[in-house]
Amino acid sequence: MTLQLFLQILVNGLMIGAIYALVASGFTLILGVLQVFNFAQGQFYMLGAFATYAVASVLGAPYVVAILAALAAMALLGILVYFSIIKWTLRYGFFHTMLATVAFGTIVGQAAVLKFGYSTAVVAAVVDKTLALGGVSLNSGKLLVLAGALVVMGLLYWFMRTKIGVAMQACAENREVACLQGINAGKVFWVTMAVGCALCGVAGALVVPVLSASTNMGQLIFLKAIIVVLVGGTGSMAGALLAAFLVGIVESFAFQYVESFAPLVIFALVAILIYFRPGGLLGKPLPIPGQ
């Protein structure tokens, strides 16, 4: 394998890993804090991509504005979903909220198909240059996605250290004791939904100049997000980030050798990992339903 090929595969893996990281960290945040298995998580990614398309390509706004618009729109939608669906089903337990999100995700998915059809939304590449470094050429669009994702992760790291961010961690660890500290769980929950969904929206916004948006992209990434969360460990943000890049890179290299068997490689590795470490790399085992 030449250096050029190796680096290209590595960048592919890092880029898709960064996207997995954003979606998975949003998912694991909601799972950890609300103990809601949000089946609609992928749809926020899809909607984020389409929102970016609408703002950047249809309205003609600068791409950065489109990213912020997608972020804000998905945060708002997350809050809306919390107050209209999650809040009412939360008290009945794990499976009720899960089913409610399945229903919501299906409705969003089908509505998107009705509205956008089977076609794709394409946002023109923001940077369309190839970086040549000592005979190795790399697509700068992918590096931009990676950079953008790293910025978002940095912001997330900062946010998790603010008072409300720490409260989210406290709620995830022990909801009752958090309440005993005067933390308003309801407030923490809607903020968590906003952050978790905004992460997906940003992921969709970042990815759309490189990969075109399609109405089924949400379902596809959701499966990957679950794999990432299983590998990283539920409730562990650091685990999710680590696992996302691992999965992205393994997937990328696996394809070079075994093509369409790459998912099989991933699943086999996940199975082995879970056998030896049921809690994933850095986390706890899945929350017991009904807790």
């Binding site: 008072k163 409260a167 961690q169 406290a170 660890e173 022990n174 958090a178 005067g182 933390i183």
Partner: peptide, 17 residues
């Protein structure tokens, strides 16, 4: 029942929420 994943200061921050 401290928040074991948080620091002592962060635990106090939660108490002072």
């Amino acid at each position: 029942q401290l928040f074991l994943s948080l620091t002592v200061k962060q635990n106090l921050l939660m108490g002072a929420f």
